[in-house]
Design a protein around this nucleic acid. Sequence first.
RNA 1: GGGCGCGUAGCUCAACGGCAGAGCAGUGGCCUUUUAAGCCAUUGGUUGAAGGUUCGAAUCCUUCCGCGCUCACCA
Length: 514
Amino acid sequence: MVLMDFNELEQIRAEKIDVLRSAGIEPYPTRAKRTHTTQQAKQAFEQQETIEGADPIRVTLAGRVRAMRPMGKICFIHIEDIDGRLQLFFRVNEVGAEAMKLLTATVDLGDFIEASGEMVRTRTGEVSLLVHAYTMLAKAITPLPAGKDEIVDGELIQHGGLSDPELRYRQRYADLAVNPEVREIFRIRAKTIRALRCFMDDHQFLEVETPILQPIYGGAAARPFVTHHNQLHQDLYLRISFELYLKRLVVGGLERVYEIGRDFRNEGVSFKHNPEFTQLEFYWAYADYLQVMELTEKMISQVAMAVLGTMQITFDGKEIDLTPPWKRVNLRDGLIEATGIDIQQYPDGPSLAAAMQEKGIAANPQMPRGKLIDKLLGDHLEPTFIQPTFLYDYPIDISPLAKKIPGDPTMVERFEGFIGGMELCNAFTELNDPIDQEQRFLEMGRAYAEDDDENNPMDEDYLKAMCYGMPPQGGFGMGIDRLVMLLTGKRSIREVLLFPHLRERDRTGESSDS
RNA sequence: GGGCGCGUAGCUCAACGGCAGAGCAGUGGCCUUUUAAGCCAUUGGUUGAAGGUUCGAAUCCUUCCGCGCUCACCA
């Protein structure tokens, strides 16, 4: 029982709850009566101040106590609310001796309080609320993990605040309460998603929702999470992409569709991977991957402008310019330049692996050709693409849902977008030939072991949809978390997820018996 | 999963084989314009867990738990 485990500091605060109750004060009242936020009150005051002999501005503010300076018969408290901090000025003259005594006896840093009075300027010129009456709104028992801070030229300088990453992620509420820059990350995240939505809507894309629980997973090479429907006695998978469902909708005549939602992949966790992550996918009938490329650079640059007001961002100490057009690099040419290997000359895995080994690049000859190429581009191209770059024209064997380049049966019309040395998006001209698609599924099946989870099962219903006729279309997928990383300058995906996945804490403290 | 690093008071950190400490927060006192308020006094620890080496372990060794970085994995 967590409430039995109060430490000494919490015990002392919990006792103050009793002090309040015995003074006839409810420490958790049902309602608040706020009339202004801190900034509204400040603005109202500053406006009124210019008028000679104007009536005082009377307000009721509510917020969390973030600083407290009791000085005997007066007391200064800074409260913080959604849009900033404001100083409360308590004087025994206004609030009375009894309330003054209770203030210092029962109010702690972290408590939510409400105070009403008139706006004034203190001797040092700070706009403050001269408090006539105050009430407790919610007594905090656990002290915030905050150090002291000061405001210098409007900048908040924290002295010894919360920095332990584990505590920050496990107790994100405490992190948010204490670190305003963390709150800002999630404002940027919200703005980013809104800007993406606006962009898609403005381009006549219809927002849709497709199943998260799927009987057959597909659309990406990834291990799925498995779950079970009890009543139907049916295993279900959490989706690893939206692709196959969205393209069914294009078959149905919804020419432009998009979805923003969560994907789940049962894979390793890293600074750019979380088991669940947010994805934008769109499908665009009668467009090809070149049009998608143009729409992509337009979208990202416009989103940056909407969110940050600029197309110049700084990521990992590097200046990045998102202004279109972006650099375009042909995959084959890029690999020749970076590694001296012309993938065209090595039609299968073993020959390509041998060529790689000759260049001193570790390569497993057992690996399929596509995976080797993927490894080459991941190691030798991806990290070099700091400025926005489209890498285009991929080998067919790592792109089973993309359409062949006319006249070249080994390559497909596909591109990936990279920024800051990180893959951001993946797109292609979609394969719409059901017979070709069935072949690709069968080839994929052969390339993977039967028990390999990445061996995507044949989705017969998807083929059936395609048999009804699927218009040519361009498709696109992007990790929104990574875009938010770029826009906030954060190197870890965990920084841009409110509740990143962490291993379960060993609650008992006993060593595991496994 | 492998390698490296880290885990000490509520928070930020010292002590690196010899009495577990500081600042902030807390508690008591003084203080009617402060703002990292100040002054005086003071509480607070199973050093992540378990085992081992040693006269003696926060410190050295082993195992485990968690976090970080990194490699592997990751159309």
